[in-house]
Amino acid sequence: MPREIKMLLLVLAMALVTYVIRMLPLVFFRKKIKSRYVQSVLYYVPYAVLSAMTFPFIFYSTGNLYTALIGTAVALIASLTKSSLIVVAVLACLAVLISGFIL
């Protein structure tokens, strides 16, 4: 299969699954999930996913381990000060950019 066609099919599969998950309850069910355990699992999924996608991949996100480590540290510190997403991202990018000139 040509690369672009396979990519296109993967995108469509991804879109279809994502849509069906969102659509099923709103269209067919009208009941609440009562189980406290299931509610808890679903509550923690996004945090677990985001953390697993960030580490260790953030260390390889700039093509240079050292600038990436500095960017990660700046992002962590900026997040602790409860800055907005865009501010944290800009500070991390600037840290990588500046350390790239120095290192």
């Binding site: 945090y47 953390s51 700039t62 960017g71 997040s79 409860k82 990018c93």
Partner: peptide, 28 residues
């Protein structure tokens, strides 16, 4: 290359604040 860190930095900005407030999130 510098922009490559942006998306991950945003993910950190999403997970860190609730992790400082809830032990469950911090653990996860």
């Amino acid at each position: 290359n510098a922009l490559g860190v942006a998306l991950y930095a945003m993910f950190i900005a999403i997970i860190v604040p609730p992790a400082t407030k809830e032990r469950g999130v911090l653990f996860a």
